[in-house]
Amino acid sequence: MVRATSEQLNAAALLFASYRQFYGLVENQTESKKFIQERLEKQDSAIFIAYHQQQACGFVQLYFSFSSLSISPTIILNDLYVPISHRQNGIATQLMQHVKKFAHDGGYSGISLCTPSDNHKARALYEQAGYQIDNQFVYYFLNLK
């Protein structure tokens, strides 16, 4: 597991582009690479890449936030992706464990994430890792694009 820097830009951008395609978005390699490069330069996210035999085989991208109610920093697990060719090898589980350790060691009070309700494999992964559906708050989104 490696925290991405400019040295891992190409690997991170390629995984990110594949992740976006997984969600049905038209791929634009240039825009994906630019987006990831900006995240790395501005250090406004943390990207971890899993490797197997020197090949990038999965990534997770985290954003940093705060909880006013608990008066503490939190993490938003925004992106997690393992290409089909590397699935069923425990890579997603390893990424999730790494995120949990990173958050714990960094003093974050929690990790939030969302996934489509019909993404049953992801939901099973998250629930196996101890994540619970939040029945206290309702998630809203205002689309501006």
Rank of each mutant, 00 (worst) to 15 (best):
Q97F: 00
A56L: 00
N135D: 12
Y140F: 14
T74E: 10
G58D: 02
Q97G: 13
N78L: 04
A56D: 01
L25M: 10
E7Q: 13
A17Q: 12
H98W: 13
T93Q: 13
S117P: 00
I49G: 05
Q61C: 12
Q97D: 12
N143C: 01
Q37I: 02
G58N: 06
L113H: 04
T5S: 12
D44I: 11
A124L: 09
K100M: 11
P116A: 14
Y139H: 13
T74Y: 09
Y81S: 06
R123Y: 03
L77M: 13
R39C: 13
T30M: 11
Y139N: 11
N119Q: 04
Y63S: 09
A4H: 07
P73W: 07
S32D: 07
V26T: 15
Y140M: 06
F16L: 03
K100V: 08
F141V: 10
H120F: 14
D44F: 09
T115I: 05
D105Q: 12
D118F: 15
K145F: 03
H52I: 11
P73Y: 08
R123W: 02
A11F: 10
C57Q: 02
G107I: 08
K145E: 10
K100I: 15
Q88D: 10
F35M: 11
D118V: 09
R123I: 15
G58F: 09
I49H: 03
K145T: 10
I36P: 06
A50Q: 11
L95C: 02
A92T: 02
N28E: 11
A124H: 12
N10E: 12
K42E: 14
R39N: 08
Y51D: 00
F141R: 12
Y139A: 03
F22G: 02
I47L: 10
I71K: 14
G130W: 06
A124V: 03
Q55F: 00
E127F: 09
L62F: 00
T93M: 05
L144H: 04
Q61E: 15
N10S: 10
V82F: 05
M96K: 02
A56Y: 03
